[in-house]
Simulated assay, not measured.
Amino acid sequence: MTPQAFPLGQYFAQLAGDDRCLPVEVDAAFWETGVSELPPGRLVSMFESASDWAVWECHPQGEEMIIQIEGELVLILEQDGVEVRVPLRAGEFAVVPKGIWHTADAPGPGRAIYITPGEGTQSRERL
């Protein structure tokens, strides 16, 4: 593959195995079908958060790393029936343990990079 730049957000990167990094174009069908077609590995993505998340999510295949690059995010982890809040400011990161349900509040606009074991990701509506 010829080296080139990919806009993060329009593309994600799949870190597959020990030796591959695959650019993955993201479209409307990605979360329904595209993510399941990826080889095993970790998905690197970037999202902007201007409001609280509408869902809880869980990654049963491994830990997720969240790197806050702009603004602030309050990560909420559901551990043993208790909500644990972890504020993240620009330049900080947190690790979500394998199999832990989590969501987030966004006190204001911000952006974060997510390194996620995408396979088997589950979500549920946040009430």
Results as ranks from 00 to 15, higher is better:
residue 113 I to Q: 01
residue 89 R to W: 07
residue 88 L to W: 08
residue 92 E to K: 12
residue 97 P to D: 11
residue 100 I to C: 13
residue 84 V to Y: 00
residue 112 A to W: 00
residue 86 V to P: 04
residue 107 P to G: 10
residue 97 P to Y: 09
residue 105 D to C: 11
residue 109 P to R: 14
residue 98 K to G: 04
residue 109 P to A: 15
residue 84 V to K: 14
residue 100 I to S: 07
residue 84 V to S: 05
residue 101 W to R: 07
residue 94 A to I: 08
residue 82 V to A: 12
residue 87 P to V: 13
residue 98 K to A: 12
residue 83 E to M: 06
residue 95 V to C: 12
residue 107 P to A: 12
residue 98 K to E: 15
residue 107 P to I: 11
residue 105 D to R: 15
residue 110 G to Y: 02
residue 113 I to L: 11
residue 92 E to F: 09
residue 89 R to I: 07
residue 89 R to D: 11
residue 92 E to C: 10
residue 112 A to N: 04
residue 98 K to V: 13
residue 88 L to I: 09
residue 104 A to I: 02
residue 86 V to L: 14
residue 83 E to I: 03
residue 93 F to C: 14
residue 111 R to H: 06
residue 97 P to N: 09
residue 100 I to M: 10
residue 100 I to W: 05
residue 82 V to M: 08
residue 106 A to N: 03
residue 85 R to M: 10
residue 85 R to V: 04
residue 93 F to H: 14
residue 83 E to A: 08
residue 107 P to S: 10
residue 108 G to H: 13
residue 111 R to G: 01
residue 85 R to G: 04
residue 96 V to W: 08
residue 95 V to R: 14
residue 104 A to T: 04
residue 106 A to P: 05
residue 111 R to S: 05
residue 106 A to C: 05
residue 92 E to L: 10
residue 86 V to T: 14
residue 93 F to T: 07
residue 108 G to Y: 02
residue 108 G to L: 08
residue 107 P to H: 10
residue 111 R to E: 01
residue 100 I to T: 15
residue 107 P to W: 04
residue 100 I to Y: 05
residue 87 P to W: 12
residue 99 G to I: 09
residue 85 R to D: 05
residue 90 A to I: 05
residue 81 G to R: 06
residue 81 G to Q: 06
residue 93 F to G: 06
residue 95 V to T: 14
residue 94 A to K: 04
residue 112 A to Q: 03
residue 102 H to Q: 13
residue 89 R to F: 11
residue 81 G to S: 07
residue 82 V to N: 07
residue 113 I to G: 01
residue 113 I to T: 02
residue 88 L to V: 11
residue 92 E to G: 03
residue 108 G to W: 00
residue 103 T to Q: 01
residue 106 A to L: 03
residue 98 K to R: 15
residue 84 V to W: 00
residue 84 V to P: 00
residue 95 V to A: 05
residue 85 R to F: 07
residue 87 P to K: 11
residue 100 I to K: 06
residue 90 A to D: 05
residue 89 R to A: 15
residue 91 G to T: 06
residue 99 G to N: 13
residue 88 L to Q: 08
residue 108 G to P: 00
residue 98 K to T: 15
residue 107 P to Q: 12
residue 105 D to W: 03
residue 97 P to T: 11
residue 113 I to V: 15
residue 84 V to A: 08
residue 90 A to M: 05
residue 93 F to D: 02
residue 93 F to W: 10
residue 84 V to I: 14
residue 110 G to P: 02
residue 101 W to P: 04
residue 98 K to W: 05
residue 91 G to H: 02
